[in-house]
Amino acid sequence: MSAAADIKRITTATLQKLKNSGQKISMLTAYDFSFARLIDASGIDVILVGDSASNVMAGHETTLPITLDQMIYHASSVVRGAKRCLVVVDLPFGAYQSNSDIALASAIRIMKETGAHAIKLEGGEEIIDSVKRIISAGIPVMGHLGLTPQSIYKFGSYNVRAKEEAEANKLKSDALILQEAGCFSLVLEKIPAALAKVVSQSLHIPTIGIGAGPHCDGQVLVMHDMLGINTEFRPRFLRQYLNLYEQVTGAVKQYIDDVKKGGFPSESESY
């Protein structure tokens, strides 16, 4: 039996078991085959093919420009590299907000064309019809509340959300609505830690935090931020585990120097 056959795939049920047993869930973004393979081999629980690809892969200012076709391309690449973890794909802006028919068609395309295991949508009660339609088709849905980047022009900033009572109450209500609709998990982005704790304790499904404090059932970061590839983005919630910007530019500078001085390739590197 091959080693690949021994790998047990993580599922939505696995995440529920982790929450039930008090074990934390680890989640990172990835957008291509090579990094997906590295992250998966490291033992991550979930890879999110985030619409943040619009920022870190394509250089856009927001997540809004990325298309469904582009998300399918990135997700297909990630799925080919992930042999163990659960792969969740963001539905991009415009692929679900207008009506539930379009939302379902978008989700079906992602599942059929990428081989991914679940999709993620931003919003609460205002998109609940789309959530229900997608789940009724047998597609697992991860919700996303708090700072929802696809609504950045509505918010006007990337500041912490739900600090005021009215917005906090709506978030708590939306979380319960999404759970009742059948979401298997919920991302809470950039909200007060105390609120995230209340929401996490009120739900039986797992919560995944980003800038939402330590009381969520798991955490997610953007890979490019966590590895120090993107040096411009340094929010309070980010822990940078490497500085790949310095390491990569240093290696490239050394390569340039070796080429310019004739040190590469050497005799042993020639045929």
Rank of each mutant, 00 (worst) to 15 (best):
E180H: 11
A181T: 04
A181K: 04
A181G: 01
A181D: 00
C183P: 00
C183R: 09
C183T: 13
F184I: 09
F184Y: 15
F184T: 12
F184G: 06
F184M: 10
F184A: 06
S185Q: 03
S185F: 03
L188M: 04
L188I: 06
I191H: 00
I191W: 00
P192F: 00
A193Y: 01
A193D: 02
A194F: 03
A194Q: 14
A194N: 08
A194S: 14
L195M: 06
L195E: 02
K197R: 13
K197H: 02
K197C: 01
V198H: 04
V198Q: 10
S200H: 00
S200C: 01
S200N: 02
Q201T: 05
S202N: 14
S202H: 08
L203A: 09
H204Y: 12
H204C: 09
I205L: 02
P206W: 10
T207E: 00
T207R: 03
I208C: 04
I208R: 08
I208V: 15
I210Q: 05
I210F: 06
I210P: 02
I210M: 15
G211N: 03
G211H: 00
P214R: 09
P214N: 12
P214A: 13
H215A: 10
C216T: 15
D217L: 07
G218E: 01
V220M: 04
V220I: 15
V220S: 04
V222Y: 01
V222W: 01
M223W: 03
H224N: 14
D225R: 10
D225Q: 10
D225V: 09
M226P: 06
M226K: 06
M226E: 08
M226I: 15
L227H: 09
L227S: 09
L227G: 07
G228M: 11
G228Q: 08
G228R: 08
I229L: 15
I229S: 06
T231E: 10
T231W: 05
T231G: 04
E232V: 08
E232Q: 14
R234A: 13
R234P: 00
R234Q: 14
P235D: 13
P235K: 11
R236M: 05
F237Q: 13
F237T: 11
F237C: 11
R239Y: 10
Q240R: 14
Q240W: 04
Q240E: 15
Y241D: 08
L242W: 12
L242N: 10
L242I: 07
L244A: 08
Y245K: 11
Y245T: 12
Y245E: 09
E246W: 03
E246L: 07
Q247G: 05
Q247V: 12
V248H: 01
V248T: 08
V248L: 06
T249Q: 06
T249R: 12
G250C: 06
G250S: 15
A251F: 02
V252M: 15
Q254C: 04
Q254K: 15
Y255H: 10
I256V: 14
D257A: 14
D257P: 01
D257S: 15
D258N: 12
D258I: 04
D258Y: 05
V259I: 14
K261P: 03
G262V: 10
G262T: 12
G262Q: 06
G262K: 07
G263I: 08
G263T: 07
G263Y: 08
F264H: 11
F264P: 00
P265L: 10
P265Q: 12
P265V: 12
S266Q: 10
S266H: 05
S266Y: 03
